[in-house]
Design a binder for these strands. Sequence first.
DNA 1: TGTAGCATGTAAGCCGTTACATGATTGA
DNA 2: TCAATCATGTAACGGCTTACATGCTACA
Lengths: 187, 187
Amino acid sequence: MSTDLSMTSYALLGLLALDARTREEGLTGYEIKQRADRTMRFYWTSPAMSQIYTELDRLAEADLVMSQDAAEGRRRARRFTLSETGLATLEEWLATPPEDPIPVLKHPVALRLMLGAMASPESTIGVLDDYLEQLSRRREELQQVRALLADRHEARYPARVAQWGLSYFDSEREIAEQLRKDIHDNG
Amino acid sequence: MSTDLSMTSYALLGLLALDARTREEGLTGYEIKQRADRTMRFYWTSPAMSQIYTELDRLAEADLVMSQDAAEGRRRARRFTLSETGLATLEEWLATPPEDPIPVLKHPVALRLMLGAMASPESTIGVLDDYLEQLSRRREELQQVRALLADRHEARYPARVAQWGLSYFDSEREIAEQLRKDIHDNG
DNA sequence: TGTAGCATGTAAGCCGTTACATGATTGA
DNA sequence: TCAATCATGTAACGGCTTACATGCTACA
């Protein structure tokens, strides 16, 4: 058990596990991508389609997922479900606390801000404004996801994660506005 | 000009640019790594030593940095400084607002929380507690960096970035505590 | 005298992306 | 009938990490 998968593998197993609670047929690679785009991208990444298929092949090879070709009449499709080994692997992973739980953050705006002294205050403020705009757009998207999950007891954990994301966006908005003002006032 | 470098390349150019304002000799790869470990890792990544050397070679090849072998007597070392082209490239990059300014966040704790329903509340709370502990450790480290920069006018932009990081840690602490309580109360 | 820190590099390999290619089905 | 969406895959490559290898210098 547990040939040490990548985080993204566990994430895919997780999406399958979540789905298994409400459906039986499993998910196609395409559908997994949609789920990832809708929620996972906010606190992880949404892997490229090609990677999802590659990853699913690898997981199938390791007997962590089972694939089943589409029923006749329908468009060609492979539907993936968690195997028992897959479920056990996922549960084992969940029970093992992460060695280094600090998130990896790659913040292009902060990177630029570091060099703000090399640019005009106006252009730095412009970058912050762009960021603020993107933030509110993203926040709204996530807010809609959150709304779909609200009050569904089985979805309370995903709802909490969405809440986390909203809180992050709010905090970013606040500090970006503060820094904007600071730069405006003090250069 | 501008053969489209990776973000990390710009980050390295940025570290060289910051250093150039107070020193003339430039930095060794080793010293760049130290700078990156001290500050950059909080909002970007601190690249592996091997990558820094590889990257510096590439930048030197493109005439964006100049390397100079150590003066005699000293231990063998290559010191890197920004070239004029390098400075121009960096300034051009700074003037071009990022196409997609949303940070990439890979949050292993949020990923696990998404699947909290598969584990016991106690174990999920344990993960959050570990996270909170790491957070406060990290916060303290950054606080010290921040303290070093405080009140030095030339360092006001790096100080702002540090401030940003502190605000992020604070926000994370708050939401993690809230969610911890929520899970404790409602499972 | 020996260990920690300074300093540089090569090799192998993983993870993930973009670009490309193919084809079926639905609905306007 | 034509575009959008569903659906799957291959190839090439970039970025970054770990592991490994080497050697000097300061200092306890």
